[in-house]
Structure formats: C-alpha cells, structure tokens
Write a protein that binds this DNA or RNA. Structure first.
Lengths: 231, 231
DNA sequence: CCAAAAGTGTTCAGGCTACACCCATGT
DNA sequence: ACATGGGTGTAGCCTGAACACTTTTGG
C-alpha cells in the first residue's frame, strides 16, 4: 500500500478535564467552558478541540488548554480515548481525553477561542454537560483517585508551599474519606519527600502552620531505585 | 458550526498487543504478524488496522484481532493512544492501542487479511518491530504488570481449570520475581475467589495437582462492596 | 525405591489503626 | 481568657516475609 488510506475518516479531538483544588471550600473543582457554538450551544463542556495534522496529541491538548483557559505549565496526562459512534451528533468524532492538575496560582482563567465563558465547578455539583463529557469526567475522577494513592501527584493541586493540613484536606476531599491527622503526618513525612521551610502560614487566631515544599528531584531518584510512594 | 470540520485529518488505527502464556516454557508471549505490505513489508508488527467510521474503537480492535489472528472472546482493554506526528512514514496516523489476554486454548492462530504470517514470541525476545510498536509493547507490558497486582486478570491467561503452581509461575514470569509458594497459596486462597474442582491435573511422576477455577461472579459482587484484590 | 512436584504452619518484625492532650496565636 | 486549628506518642493488631518437611504419584 503506497497510496494513502482513502475511506471516510473520523475527526479527532482532544478534551481536557482540568482539576483544581479550592482550599477555602476544601472541594475538588473542574474547569468547564460554556460553548459558544452549536451543537450544545450555551451548554457547559470540557475544554477541547480538533487535533491538527502537524501536532502531537499532547501538543493539541496543551494548545487547547492555553487557548480556552489561559492555563499553561500544568500537569497533563492522557486519560482515555472515547470512540463510540454517536458521541457527536454532527459526525464521527473520536476524542482523546486528557486530565490536568493545576495549582491555585494558575487559576487565572479567561475564556477566548470558541468558549464564551470559563468557570470552576465543584466536582460534586457539575451542571449537565455536552456530548459524553459527563462520562469523561467520571473516568478522570476515577483515575485521579487511583493515582493519588500511589503517586505523588497531589502536590500538583497545591501551591508550591503548603501545610500538612492543606495536603490532608486535599486527600480527604478527593478520596472521600476521613484520615487520622497523626497517622497521615507520620506517613507523609516518613517518605522524606517534603522539605520543611523556614516559613509558617499565618491564618487566623491560632498557631501558625509549618510550610513544606515537595522535593521532585528526590522523588525521581528514589523512583529509579524502585521506591513506591503510597498514600 | 453546522458544517463538518474540513481541515486535513489524521488517519485512525487500532493496534493490539496480544499476550499469551506458555505454561511449558513458563514465558509470557506476544502475538506478532509479519507484514505482507509496505511500509515495513516483511517486518514483524502488532496486529491492527484502520478504524472504520461506523464502528467503535473496541469493535475495530476486536475485528482486527479476528481478521488477523482468528482470536475472539478474549479479554481486551484500551491501553493508550499514540499520536506522535511521524510514527507512520506515509502520513499522519494516530493509533489507539489495546492489549488482549488470551487463554492457551484460544491460541489457534492463523493469519489472513494483510498478515502474511502470525506467530508467538516470548516478550523477552521479540524481533525488531515496525513503526513505534516496540514502544507500544513496552507500554502494554508495564500496564499488564501493574494491573496484575491489584486486579484478577491473571486468570485470563490460563485455561479455565488451572493449578496453583501454574498461577504462581504466571505471576513470577510476568512480574519477574520469585514468590514463596506457601505465602502465595495462602494469599490467593484467602480471597476465596478460587473454586477447588473435583479433578486433579496429572503431569508426570509426582503427586497430581488440585485444579481450580476462578469465580468471576463472586469477584463482581465483592468488587461492588469495595473489595480490593491484591497480588 | 527413587525422583519430582504438591501440599502444608509457625514465628517474627514492621506497618497500620485507634486514640487524647498540649501549643501558639488573634481577638 | 478563650476560641481555633497546629502539633505530637504509644499500644495492640494484623499483615507480610522467611523458612523445611511430608505426601503422592510414575517410572
């Protein structure tokens, strides 16, 4: 076969499930855009769009993220590819879904291309979504929960400097469980991947909290030696 | 946007990493086909092909598997989507990779469409592969190893009736570790997901081995109650 | 009777769980 | 001084790892 394949082709898109964590409410959030165009005009949807022939899938995901939400330099990982025949009413569209984790500082969102509006919603209370985006969101949530247990990705949802209580609230919120404070601290400090800073976090009429930062280099070194992060 | 998207489109394929376990050699195997057409004519490659507009991705994977290898009713799960720009020399091709697990009884392979020849290779000793199929195979192996630990998919690689020793050899081979016989049996029987049969497996000048079968219904019930399989 | 794999229990150490009080600060 | 969240240690339990001999069969 030296000629190219000429049968009708599916269109290819990427969709991104962007997670953020709001320390105030302690709730996990998703970034949604309100569609400015048909189909599903004015419905909420995941940011995404068509893949160009000259860009990789990862590039397409980052580009769409930048265009529609002004986010960059976030944790981004491929999730799953959704390819049922009727997921888009216009024609056959296969979508490679990604999920992204953003730190609160990056939450400077502003809509632009294709998106009339962008906004954060708590994952426990999202509006009806366009296409099969509810399924994609569920898949992303399941993946996030699974991954949080055995890989240190929770830090991607927190500011660079954070307290142990913030980290614990994040775990509790995402996993939907209550965790014992002492046990949590013992375990997470036991890994020796958190560096205590000289600063503290002042926040109201009580003792200030120690700030930490995650040490990604040390984690990489340990990982190569067969180390396994957990909880 | 009421018109369809008209920019140049990537072609979409599925590729399948088919694993089998050879109890004789105790080695994990992959099914490869020798390509009958360019590019990479006469090279070994993963079975796969173009996705048709009227079929889902899962259907496309099953169809290609049936066409190229005569396999059906196997465990099949989406793996990852590979979309670098130059992975196919002809044009832009995005490939949704699947991995499949087959029981030895299903190994009645015979090549047909597009494939000049189909053959099993031990994963530790595969020939050079076409396209980026070596990368796909590595990804599939990593996934299989990860999944074997916390989901009962090992049974998909064994005949319906099997001995604990066969199961242990499978785990040892895939995970690349040695496992203590007594501990392994304690753990795996502790789940109470293996049903001891009234039959034994006679195999040479030694005590015959008890045969078991996996109980998928019980597993489904336990899973819904939050049970987690492990090792 | 010999070779070969099947089958079986106990001990020990380390990790996980449960649990309650004092500390530092702002108002 | 009081209200608020930050921070800390221990004891019991359970799980995982290490380890060696008897049993059943075919040749």
């Amino acid at each position: 076969m030296n000629h190219t394949y000429q049968y009708p082709r599916a269109a290819l898109t990427v969709d991104c499930v962007v997670f953020g964590f709001d320390d105030g409410s302690g709730a996990l959030q998703v970034l949604l855009i309100r569609r400015g165009i048909a189909p599903f005009k004015d419905h909420w949807a995941l940011p995404g769009g068509f893949v160009r022939v000259e860009e990789t899938l990862d590039e397409a995901a980052r580009r769409e993220l930048a265009e529609e939400t002004n986010l960059s330099t976030v944790f981004l990982e491929q999730l799953y590819t959704f390819g049922t025949v009727d997921r888009d009413p216009r024609e056959r569209v296969v979508s490679v879904a990604y999920y992204a984790l953003t730190k609160p500082a990056d939450h400077t969102t502003a809509a632009s291309t294709d998106a009339a509006e962008a906004s954060w919603f708590p994952v426990s209370d999202v509006p009806p979504l366009a296409f099969d985006h509810a399924t994609i969101l569920d898949t992303a949530l399941a993946r996030l929960r699974g991954k949080l247990r055995y890989e240190p990705i929770g830090f991607e949802l927190l500011p660079p400097k954070f307290t142990l209580t913030q980290l614990q609230r994040l775990y509790e919120s995402v996993l939907g469980t209550e965790i014992d404070k002492r046990n949590f601290r013992k375990k997470v400090l036991g890994h020796e991947l958190l560096i205590p800073l000289k600063e503290t976090h002042r926040d109201g009429p009580h003792r200030p909290a120690q700030l930490f930062r995650f040490d990604p280099e040390k984690y990489e070194r340990l990982k190569k030696k067969g180390f396994l992060f957990e909880l």
